[in-house]
Simulated scan of single mutants.
Amino acid sequence: MLIDYHTHHARCGHAVGSLEDYVKRGIEIGLGQIGLSDHIPLVHVDPAAYYPEMAMPMEELPHYVEECYALKEKYKGVIDIRVGLEADYIEGWEKELEQIINAYEWDYVIGSVHFLGEWDVTDFRQTHGWEGRNRLDVYRTYYDAVQKAAASGLYDYIGHIDVIKRFGFKPEEDVTELENAALEAVKRHDLAIELNASGLRMPAEEMFPSRRMLKYALELGIPITIGSDAHQPERLGQYLDQAREQLKEVGFSQLATFNKRKRTMIGF
């Protein structure tokens, strides 16, 4: 079965296309399952005073969920739609995040670290945030947040676990210990991770996570799913052939799928 669990649409402000556009594209490319997983509204900054077009407005969240479930019913028997949310982990804002997550019935919730405080390390407009910072310290802070996300109990899998490398800012020092500790936290709390193929079109020029991290995840027995992180309908499924091939080369034989927060493994 072909799946893609990481997608975004126009409500988030920095993607294009309607939810139905993604569903139709999924049918066109032969997906068996498509996960709709747009960004949770911002909770720790004032959206009106922050960078624009970061996430869907809070007032749009119920409409997003309603539309997802309407499409799930409309396309029943044609494509299996899973209703998800990419919910940023923000240290110190766990209660607010929990309230939003628990207000709706999700098939899965992705735990992603984009923000270190008010700095979104994945936003191309904020790469100046690296200026004057010790890169190893940033990596330590980032992977500490990933561990806390894994321990929070809020999520079903961790998204693009090493996305801190997205723009090519890396310490000179070896960060294997930090990466391994993050994966060990994922294992300890019985979460999955994703192989996010979008890194191939980023300055990192590598999927998230790296092949080395994938090998350690396999060694630990961490389940894995895949996603294109598409922000345009035509990018749905992009690079997922390469992602599946890399997973097979590393030694994975199953992918994690999710239904009402329950994980099921399928062959690929």
Results as ranks from 00 to 15, higher is better:
Ser37Met: 10
Ile158Gln: 02
Arg11Gly: 00
Gln126Pro: 04
Arg235Tyr: 14
Ser152Phe: 01
His6Lys: 12
Thr257Arg: 05
Asn134Leu: 09
Gly267Cys: 13
Ala70Asn: 11
Gly221Glu: 04
Leu220Lys: 04
Arg263Thr: 09
Phe208Glu: 02
Gly92Ile: 02
Ser210Met: 02
Asn102Gly: 11
Glu249Ile: 11
Glu96Leu: 07
Lys24Thr: 03
Pro41Ser: 13
Gln238Asp: 15
Gly129Lys: 03
Thr127Glu: 07
Leu71Asp: 07
Leu97Gly: 07
Gly77His: 05
Tyr51Gly: 03
Gly17Val: 10
Ser253Phe: 00
Glu118Cys: 07
Arg188Pro: 02
Leu136Pro: 08
Arg82Trp: 07
Val43Cys: 00
Glu245Asp: 15
Ala230Tyr: 11
Ala48Trp: 13
Arg211Gln: 10
Tyr142Thr: 03
Asn102Leu: 09
Lys165Glu: 10
Ile81Val: 15
Gln238Ile: 12
Phe115Ile: 04
Asp88Lys: 04
Met54Leu: 13
Glu66Ser: 14
Tyr50Met: 03
Ala149His: 03
Asp4Lys: 10
Phe252Asn: 13
Tyr5His: 14
Gly129Arg: 02
Gly92Val: 05
Leu247Ala: 06
Val121Phe: 07
Glu105Met: 05
Asp190Lys: 14
Leu97Ile: 05
Val43Asp: 00
Asn259Phe: 14
Gly159Tyr: 08
Ile266Gly: 08
Arg166Ser: 03
Tyr157Ser: 07
Val83Trp: 05
Leu240Phe: 06
Tyr143Phe: 14
Ala243Trp: 08
Asp174Lys: 09
Ile79Met: 09
Lys95Arg: 14
Tyr104Val: 05
Leu85Tyr: 05
Val65Leu: 11
Tyr69Gly: 00
Asp174Ser: 08
Arg235His: 15
Tyr139Ser: 02
Phe115Asn: 15
Leu183Asp: 01
Lys215Tyr: 01
Arg244Ile: 14
Ala192Pro: 05
Cys12Trp: 03
Val78Lys: 13
Pro209Leu: 08
Gly30Trp: 04
